[in-house]
């Protein structure tokens, strides 16, 4: 089907305007991160562009340390979620045992409990475990995920039951089948969930704010907040360069995995 040219122009016009509006805040920040503070304060167009702000941000703040922490935390959560939710999804799809439906309902129920509503005892648990300012404190509470389990369950259900039966006849146990067949076959959905998990963990805010008190495991999000509170009135260029650094990894991930994420989220969400 081809579109009349006038309609095409209308669409391109609307798309461009929308894109400009949606992207403006990030674009402005990006430009500002290369601008000299004087230009920002006077609101003039940039006279010169330089990496000075980035250099300053790295020099004045342990940004590298924060970035590393964020990577460790996000990757740990991603891997933890992949392992736990794929195991659980396997049980819900391939194993038949008494009480399975009840447990499945329990998983659904977890979606109704916002993490924020149970954050006080959670904080106390982490503190009593001695996990404040520790990587486990930042990661372990997020390993179990109902959303991830549902997404993978949806995907595992598309694996023909006959594959399981053929492997049963061949004498392959459940764990081996999970490892050797289910995980490789469901590779793309694992990648999707992984990307989503990384994205959300990288962007976590409230929990790292609570469970870190110093720089040892502090994530870059909290680092940015500190950068902002300390620099607030004077150096917007440095703040913006910090913010840009924070979003670069997730932006790359998003650009690479946009199609996958879209498919995965729609499937996990709707069915």
């Amino acid at each position: 089907m081809t579109m009349p040219i006038s309609k095409k122009i209308l669409f391109y016009f609307l798309l461009s305007i929308s894109a400009l509006v949606v992207f403006a805040p990030a674009l402005l920040a990006f430009v500002m991160s290369f601008m000299d503070n004087k230009d920002i304060m006077t609101g003039s167009l940039p006279q010169s562009l330089s990496f000075d702000n980035y250099i300053k941000a790295f020099e004045q703040f342990p940004l590298l340390k924060y970035l590393l922490n964020s990577f460790i935390v996000a990757i740990a959560i991603t891997i933890g979620q992949l392992i736990l939710s794929s195991l659980a999804a396997y049980a819900f799809v391939f194993l038949e045992f008494k009480g399975r439906d009840l447990l499945f309902f329990l998983f659904i129920a977890t979606m109704m409990v916002p993490f924020e509503a149970s954050i006080i005892p959670n904080f106390h648990i982490i503190r009593d475990l001695g996990w404040i300012d520790q990587y486990p404190g930042l990661t372990v509470p997020f390993f179990a995920t109902a959303f991830g389990t549902f997404l993978l369950r949806q995907n595992f259900k598309q694996i023909p039951k006959e594959l399981r039966e053929a492997s049963q006849i061949a004498g392959m146990g459940d764990f081996k089948f999970y490892l050797k067949v289910v995980l490789p076959v469901a590779k793309t959905s694992l990648v999707t969930l992984g990307a989503y998990g990384f994205l959300t963990s990288w962007n976590m805010y409230l929990w790292p704010l609570l469970s870190t008190t110093n720089d040892t495991v502090r994530t870059v999000q909290i680092g940015l907040k500190q950068l902002q509170t300390q620099e607030q009135l004077n150096d917007w260029g440095v703040i913006m360069s910090g913010a840009i650094i924070v979003i670069i990894p997730t932006m790359i991930l998003l650009f690479l995995g946009q199609k996958q994420l879209q498919k995965g989220l729609t499937e996990g969400a709707i069915k």
Partner: peptide, 20 residues
């Protein structure tokens, strides 16, 4: 891609953008 992009921007970064 442009329309999806805000999904990759964390609360902290987005708040800083809008703070400005």
């Amino acid at each position: 891609t442009i329309f999806t992009s805000t999904m990759g921007i964390s609360v902290a970064a987005a708040s800083v953008f809008w703070l400005y």
